[in-house]
Simulated scan of single mutants.
Amino acid sequence: MRYIKDIPNDKFKIGLYQWNNKYIIKIESGMYEQTYKIDDYEIESAAELERCIDESFIAAIANRFDAMHEDFSGSLRRNEVIF
């Protein structure tokens, strides 16, 4: 996987990569991460992807991280890994 650049964001660590003819956007928050892939022939440049990381997308990412945390914490409690 080839690192292209970090995309500045106040809430999350966002990295842009290229691998197997795909662009990969990796968003990290603590112990969770989300990955989005798009074929490189679908876009003209990486700059197009940066423009897609707008306020609405960041809000959806934040909601998904919250849901991921609830899902994982719930499973840990149900299975008595944590109390």
Rank of each mutant, 00 (worst) to 15 (best):
E50K: 07
D71M: 12
L76T: 03
A47E: 14
H69I: 00
E70M: 02
A59L: 05
F12R: 02
I7F: 00
N63T: 08
E33P: 00
F65I: 00
W19T: 13
I38D: 09
A67I: 02
W19G: 11
E80M: 11
V81N: 03
Y23A: 02
I27R: 07
R2L: 03
I82H: 05
M1Y: 01
K22A: 04
N79R: 11
S45V: 01
N79I: 01
E50I: 07
R77F: 02
I27M: 02
L49Y: 00
E70N: 08
Y23W: 06
I7R: 01
G15V: 02
F72W: 08
N20M: 12
N9F: 00
S45T: 15
M68W: 08
I53F: 01
N79G: 10
I14S: 04
Y36S: 10
A46N: 12
Y17S: 08
I38W: 09
F65D: 07
K13W: 00
I7G: 03
R51L: 10
F12N: 05
I61C: 10
E44H: 13
R64Y: 10
I38C: 09
E44W: 07
Y41L: 12
C52D: 09
F83K: 15
A60E: 14
A46F: 00
R51A: 12
F12H: 03
A60L: 04
R77P: 02
D71Q: 12
I53N: 07
S73K: 13
K5Y: 00
D71C: 09
I14N: 03
L49Q: 05
D10E: 14
F57V: 03
K5C: 04
E48P: 01
E42F: 12
T35K: 15
Q34K: 15
F65N: 02
K22G: 00
Y36Q: 05
M1V: 07
I43S: 12
S56K: 10
I82N: 11
E48H: 07
I7W: 00
Y32G: 05
Y17F: 15
R51Y: 08
A59H: 07
Y23S: 10
E55W: 02
F72S: 01
S73Q: 10
F83I: 07
C52M: 09
K22H: 12
I53D: 03
C52A: 13
I38G: 07
E55F: 03
M1L: 08
Y32F: 15
P8R: 01
R78G: 07
R64C: 05
E33T: 07
A67F: 13
R64Q: 14
E44G: 13
A60H: 10
G74W: 02
W19I: 14
G74P: 04
K26A: 10
Q18A: 10
K26N: 11
I58V: 13
A46W: 00
G30Q: 09
F57N: 06
Y23R: 05
I24G: 02
F57Y: 05
W19L: 15
I7C: 05
F65S: 04
E33K: 15
F83R: 14
Y23I: 05
I7Y: 00
M68T: 02
N63F: 08
Q34I: 11
I27V: 11
N20Y: 05
A60N: 14
M31C: 10
Y17L: 10
Q18E: 15
G74I: 09
C52G: 13
I58W: 04
N63C: 04
I4E: 01
D66C: 07
M68Y: 14
A67H: 12
Y32A: 08
K11E: 14
Y32T: 01
I24W: 01
E44P: 01
N9L: 01
E80H: 15
